[in-house]
């Protein structure tokens, strides 16, 4: 049992992060053409609205809450020390979790039932959607079954994650947890592991820089000032907008 636990709770996380880092950099640099959100709204738009919006909005909030519990466990515990605040946090989180679940279900159904969407579905899309679906389902079930997740995540899971970061893994807390929680944790690392091989790459190229850049973009292939000067050397670098 211990070997399996060590594999799942120590080897898998390190592997996942290593593959993630190398994979993402490699894919972004070598095959940027393949990095795309692969939107299918062009083929079907009505059902997508009921899938994509709750899915993404739920995902963003849930991701932020998980990150908060991981990064600032003490703050979270302090917040949770009043039952009212704990309830507010848990209910909000669960609501967005449900929206996440609802969205991913709607997306799955749309993918299976719409012939146009089926035509642009690859096996990787199915793998990602199933993995995410079960991950979310487990998450929601854990939220109901093992209260209060926000507190024990901060007090027990966060130290485990930090021990991984510090290269001194302590898995005791996780080992003592229910099977479903363990599966949820391993599932999360699996998502990280396959991310560079999937369309989830688009998460990493979310275009926040758009808010800062000027509207228009002009690129010169030749240096226009130097061009008429016979003494100037050739351009060595290809200009580009990456």
């Amino acid at each position: 049992m211990s070997a399996l636990h060590n594999f799942l709770f120590i080897a898998v996380p390190y592997m996942a992060v290593a593959v993630f880092l190398v994979g993402v950099v490699y894919r972004y640099r070598v095959a940027p053409f393949t990095v795309s959100s692969l939107s299918s709204q062009f083929l079907e738009t009505k059902d997508l609205f009921w899938g994509s919006v709750p899915f993404h909005v739920g995902m963003i909030v849930i991701l932020i809450l998980h990150l908060a519990a991981f990064l600032f466990p003490q703050t979270l515990l302090a917040w949770n020390s009043y039952p009212v605040r704990l309830l507010i946090l848990e209910i909000t989180g669960f609501a967005f979790g449900l929206s996440f679940l609802f969205g991913s279900m709607a997306l799955l159904i749309r993918r299976v039932t719409n012939p146009r969407i089926r035509a642009v579905t690859t096996w990787m899309d199915v793998a990602v959607e199933l993995l995410l679906f079960f991950q979310i389902l487990f998450g929601c079930m854990i939220a109901v079954g093992y209260r209060w997740g926000s507190s024990w995540f901060a007090s027990d899971l966060s130290p485990y994650l930090w021990s991984l970061v510090k290269l001194d893994p302590h898995t005791d807390a996780l080992k003592a947890m229910p099977l479903m929680v363990q599966a949820h944790v391993v599932g999360a690392f699996l998502v990280v592991l396959i991310l560079p091989f999937t369309r989830l790459m688009h998460l990493l190229v979310a275009p926040f820089h758009y808010l800062l850049r000027p509207f228009q973009l002009v690129i010169w292939n030749w240096d226009r000032k130097a061009m008429n000067d016979p003494g100037s050397p050739w351009n060595k670098h290809k200009p580009r907008n990456t």
């Binding site: 190229v205 758009y210 850049r213 973009l217 002009v218 690129i219 010169w220 292939n221 226009r224 907008n241």
Partner: peptide
């Protein structure tokens, strides 16, 4: 993404 641009030349 800033993928579209106008060629200066």
């Amino acid at each position: 993404s800033g993928a579209i641009y106008k060629r200066g030349e």
